[in-house]
Nucleic acid binder design. Structure first.
Lengths: 207, 207
DNA sequence: TAGATTGTTAATCGATTAACAATC
DNA sequence: TAGATTGTTAATCGATTAACAATC
């Protein structure tokens, strides 16, 4: 194949590069060397060059990297040029906060529908996105070409819903529930375990 | 000192161990071997034993680990036996969702006050936690022994607020804003970069 | 006791950093 | 051109896995 596997460590750093490059662009900075960027980001210049060279030679000897084009390239690598249709499962506080966050749409993530087990929410909406009863979720996924589901329901309820939506061809799950989901190998799960994060903070405070 | 530094990788795994042990306890399971736990958690038994032995020998040869006492020990290691007073900065949707999440209190994290630049929210509350104007934040931190601040405001506003609260002796920041905060070395920052997480998911979907 | 399983040392693997020839 | 900086190889460092003696 020629395509070598990219390590999780590298993948996790890509969004941060993207964020810094976006900021440099906003500041009107045209070019940057790996050394300058390394000082801003507090990493080694060597790491930046190694990371980027996993995906191609974006730099120019003696010049550095063009901020604008590197920003665009990393955006492509991250898949931000592809549109994704999302659904949210769980219209609680956290779910509503995420559905209400319009900025994701700039990056191609479009929230199409919200599902909740509480039928009394039926007919309500968040930012114009309708809240629907959970038993219509399969049909909605198939009819609206949904590929990402955001899971914001209690841990005990998650696995059952995930099993159902995976059967409909959902490709990725952004999981906010406090449980590790068991899915087929070709389904992506990205976890946001808030309580784990808070415990980590708690541990670090003791030191 | 005798205390060797614990790697970030190990620290990040601790909350997951805690979660699984809590679940085992709820299932009424009394003891577990590193091998059994490794199968549940999908890691190696060797890693589990190595990780735990950073903190002490919690197991018994020929027996394994006592679920209940290991759960308690990891809770202690994570600092969950210490009470922490929190404030929230930013009463937007995400902030309210976090303030509204009562479960953190079981782990000793008690939300004492909410601050927002929008003075019209003054007098409102979330779960009985008062929303106050931002200019009272310093006084509140000092008078209420606050050690953790949760930051849920736009990236552009974060650094200014963080500078102010760090001066009042805040020990840790749970940062939900999309920016890397620059703080003195003794202040802990734990980031929850939701957009980074979504980009990671986006990248993984392409593969 | 015999079997099971830990705690820990050694071996392996992978990721980060350093160095430098290539080259703009 | 001379200086700067990349892309990439080699060296180092750290984390994970394997192995096994200790021991319950």
């Amino acid at each position: 194949m020629g395509i070598k596997a990219i390590s999780q460590a590298v993948i996790s750093r890509l969004p941060r590069y993207y964020r810094y490059l976006g900021q440099l662009r906003d500041e009107g900075i045209e070019r940057i060397s790996s050394r300058e960027l390394s000082e801003r980001m507090n990493v080694t210049a060597s790491q930046i060059r190694q990371d980027l060279n996993n995906f191609g030679g974006f730099g120019h000897q003696g010049y550095g990297y063009n901020v604008d084009s590197l920003y665009i390239e990393i955006g492509k690598i991250l898949g931000l040029t592809t549109k994704h249709n999302l659904i949210l499962v769980g219209a609680g506080n956290l779910g509503r906060a995420i559905a209400g966050y319009a900025k994701f749409e700039k990056r191609g993530f479009i929230m199409r529908g919200i599902f909740d087990i509480d039928e009394s929410l039926n007919g309500q909406d968040v930012r114009g996105i309708p809240i629907m009863p959970l038993d219509r979720i399969e049909q909605f996924i198939l009819e609206n070409d949904i590929d990402i589901a955001v899971i914001c329901i209690p841990a005990t309820a998650s696995m059952a819903v995930v099993d159902r939506i995976v059967k409909c061809g959902i490709k990725a799950i952004w999981n906010f529930s406090h449980v590790d989901l068991d899915v087929p190998r070709d389904v992506i799960v990205e976890n946001v375990h808030l309580s784990d994060s808070l415990m980590r903070l708690s541990y670090l405070m003791k030191q």
